[in-house]
Write a protein that binds this DNA or RNA. Structure first.
Lengths: 113, 113
DNA sequence: ATTCATGGTGTAGACAATCTACGTCATATG
DNA sequence: CATATGACGTAGATTGTCTACACCATGAAT
């Protein structure tokens, strides 16, 4: 039903960074992580489930986040992710990489003289 | 000889934008475009030939740039690209897309409160 | 009772862009 | 003549995101 925006390919390369950054606030499950990013970015960044879960598994496989199943009183299962120590280091790396890219692109875009 | 930085996957999604922006200064051939971007970005952005030429052909196929072979007095052949009218419009689109992404990511990265 | 919305996790396969690693040809230089 | 450099190019691997599904549970509406 949703008109499905033409193309979103916007996220490429930044998703890991966004997820890691979000987990600084404390453990969260996938759905909540995506929701947080969407809200904080004021709807500019929308993470599809087909990007979200593969990304989480990827990050877990690399040891940057760790997961634990949790079941609420109501029997609701959710997989909570937390940032590991190496994940925190990786966050710094990715943050600086983003900064670098941002500065570099801005230099190229600088208005003509 | 250059030590070849470990991974460059940095450019994803920005290359078209960078090329289009560079052509605002006037027609140029591939090698020169790559050189310009590298210099202006102070070596942060390095475009491999395996990214450069496919990108140029892509942009040409989409009608955003147009090409013409030129031969110098010395018989040196080079393919000069210029920005088309639609290319100029596309540049605006991509520039705004980048701006959007930049702002959105910055929002998510904003230091914890 | 059963449909429906919502919350939550997940996969399969398509697609696109970049990279590495080649190859070609020409000119200029030692 | 060998080597460097300028210039263009392709093939194939890799990677990350997207679309489009499927599953399961709860709670609300008809």
């Amino acid at each position: 039903m949703t008109p499905a925006s033409p193309r979103n390919q916007l996220l490429y390369g930044t998703l890991d960074l966004l997820i890691l950054r979000t987990l600084v606030y404390g453990p969260a499950h996938g759905h909540a992580i995506a929701g947080h990013i969407q809200r904080v970015s004021e709807d500019a960044l929308r993470i599809e489930t087909g990007s979200l879960y593969p990304a989480l598994h990827r990050l877990e496989a690399r040891g940057w986040i760790a997961a634990k199943w949790k079941t609420s009183d109501k029997g609701k299962r959710a997989r909570y992710y937390r940032l590991t120590r190496t994940g925190r280091r990786q966050l710094a790396v990715e943050q600086s990489r983003w900064q670098q890219l941002s500065v570099a692109v801005t230099r190229v875009l600088r208005p003509a003289d």
